[in-house]
């Protein structure tokens, strides 16, 4: 094959090993160390005696308080770190719940025929019509605040995507020769499904899980920002931004510090899910 036939020369360049896993992984590892391993500089909920200026104004970022203090004289960095622990935890567990529910629905819908499969797929389609944040907010206000309820809400609204992808994947895999071969050998359907098919689609499930983490973190932040998620004094980035909003003009760090951490973490997680996705995509796709 000559270069002429290949169109743009770039297409001839061999796909380079992606550097993204390193970048995202290192970033996230650093954040995990920051959030979980290092102690917070101050007690996140303590109203520090010297946490406000003489006129009662929150302190701007400086040497003693890198992210400044909030209007109650609490150390913003300590609160952002504690909020980060919660956000990551909710992101990982919430995405795990959603991916598990979605995969289960997808496995059932993809591996069966007839009313069960059709019913599940229609139900999934219909669920797409739900304005999800409205549903999440209504559900949260009905169930009441709390981390357990929040995880329930996340699971209830975010399983749809996983269900659709897994259904499609299971259907695609089912038509491949190895499935037919296994069935011919007399391997029972459930065993083919769980021992052979599931491992083959697990990269896609991993991608769903990792993208779900950033999605869940954003969902939780939005809910908490609206005052419907985790309630103060427990700090999350969403409710810190909500509290800082009123002081935005005079103390922008109250919004920007948690906001920046939120963006950095979500981006790091996105880079990781891109890396997982790169690894799992088959064939030569070049630089993407």
């Amino acid at each position: 094959m000559t270069a002429l036939m290949q169109g743009p020369l770039v297409a001839l360049a061999p796909p380079r090993a992606s550097r993204r896993p390193l970048v995202g992984g290192v970033a996230l590892a650093l954040l995990v160390v920051l959030f979980y391993v290092l102690p917070t500089p101050y007690d996140p909920n303590e109203q520090l005696a010297d946490g406000l200026s003489p006129i009662g104004f929150p302190l701007a970022p400086g040497w003693t308080h890198p992210f400044g203090t909030d209007p109650l004289g609490r150390d913003e960095l300590s609160r952002a770190i504690v909020g980060g622990r919660l956000s990551l935890l909710i992101g990982v567990v919430g995405s795990l719940v959603a991916t598990a529910i979605g995969s289960l629905v997808g496995l059932l819908a993809g591996s069966t025929v007839g009313w069960l499969s059709n019913g599940l797929m229609r139900f999934t389609d219909i669920f797409m019509a739900f304005p999800y944040l409205l549903l999440a907010a209504a559900l949260q206000s009905v169930l009441g605040p709390g981390i357990g309820n929040l995880l329930l809400v996340v699971g209830a609204v975010s399983w749809v995507n996983a269900a659709r992808v897994v259904t499609a994947q299971v259907r695609a895999e089912s038509s491949l020769d190895y499935v037919a071969a296994l069935r011919t050998l007399g391997v029972p359907r459930w065993r083919v499904l769980l021992r052979h098919l599931l491992p083959n689609i697990s990269p896609q499930v991993m991608v769903l899980f990792t993208t779900g983490i950033s999605y869940t973190i954003l969902l939780e932040a939005t809910l908490s920002f609206l005052g419907l998620g985790i309630q103060p004094p427990t700090a999350t980035w969403g409710n810190m931004i909500r509290e800082g909003q009123a002081y935005f003009s005079s103390a922008p760090w109250l919004v920007l510090a948690p906001g920046l951490l939120l963006v950095v973490v979500v981006t790091a997680v996105s880079l990781i899910s891109d890396a997982v996705s790169d690894r799992s995509s088959k064939g030569l796709k070049g630089f993407r």
């Binding site: 932040a221 931004i241 003009s249 919004v255 920007l256 996105s270």
Partner: peptide, 22 residues
């Protein structure tokens, strides 16, 4: 773009308010 996808609309809105209001 990846960075932009990590910014929830409410945060983007607040940042725009900050930039354009002050």
């Amino acid at each position: 773009v990846v960075l932009g996808m990590g910014v929830p609309p409410f945060l983007m809105g607040l940042v725009l308010v900050f930039v354009f209001a002050y």
